[in-house]
Design a protein around this nucleic acid. Sequence first.
DNA 1: ATTAAATGCCACTTGCATGTAGTATTTTAC
DNA 2: GTAAAATACTACATGCAAGTGGCATTTAAT
Lengths: 136, 136
Amino acid sequence: MNLSKTSKYAFRVLGQMAKNEKELYSAQQLHKEIDVPERYLRRLLTDLSKYGFIKSIQGRQGGFAFARDISKIFLIEIVVAIDGLDSIDGCILGYDSCAFDHACPMHNIWEETKRKVIETLTKTSLKDIQNAGLKL
Amino acid sequence: MNLSKTSKYAFRVLGQMAKNEKELYSAQQLHKEIDVPERYLRRLLTDLSKYGFIKSIQGRQGGFAFARDISKIFLIEIVVAIDGLDSIDGCILGYDSCAFDHACPMHNIWEETKRKVIETLTKTSLKDIQNAGLKL
DNA sequence: ATTAAATGCCACTTGCATGTAGTATTTTAC
DNA sequence: GTAAAATACTACATGCAAGTGGCATTTAAT
Ligand code: SF4
Ligand code: SF4
């Protein structure tokens, strides 16, 4: 049950960009709007474009814009791309691989909660969090 | 939304100890039963005794036993002691302090899920996870 | 008394996520 | 064509959680 700081940064950036879906945002501009270190943000944006959420346009007047419809980009995809599904779905006791034939007591107790977390991340799109993550 | 590896270790250890509530467990014995590095486990057990979940008995034939009724030790207490409440309850966008007068879009979306997580940790006691966390 | 088996304390090491720096590349403005 | 403003790449630095090691202390068995 882990969400890396980087994933949280991604939520902020993409939430901010979702404010105007078509706009081309530069890293510098985004850095001013949300509170993420500029160089780190640049690398993150490059990564996000490799993951296919956004596209990058190089050169002067360049920047980043969405590569897909923001109503069809769901938070779970972002988390999976950055942290991997196991960060959310993995064993709550931290075992890498579980060899129980039958689930241990903790498993069933946690199952429903885990499902809720995944469900929320799965059904929430960037459209739903437009304008989330403004700098304080 | 973070649960440290150490908290997960604590779930394993205490879940294992809850198997026989009254038994006195040595670190070495527990190390054999669950998969946690021995030295790290010893430190964790000492910490857990400082937090008041268990008590330590020094000297030969010493070990650790519960200091309180296991049906009244709830997982949330363990997480709060080790990671702090903010690890669960903190801003999902990673802001240290949020200055929004009105909650941002993400806040309300996440609220219910967060509540579910906290509720599950709050209502689950060590009694409920007896024998959880056996070594593979 | 001596030894053995346990916890307690403190400092160090390691691994990994986060953050920074330098430089190359791309494209536009003039 | 040159400079400016943007992204791309790669290597290095930093900070913190996780893990290890040495030795002191406590207590029971002998
Ligand atoms: S059964 Fe228990 S140990 Fe196995 S994956 Fe589920 S919670 Fe983890
Ligand atoms: S309102 Fe938004 S930024 Fe503020 S604490 Fe809630 S999720 Fe975080």
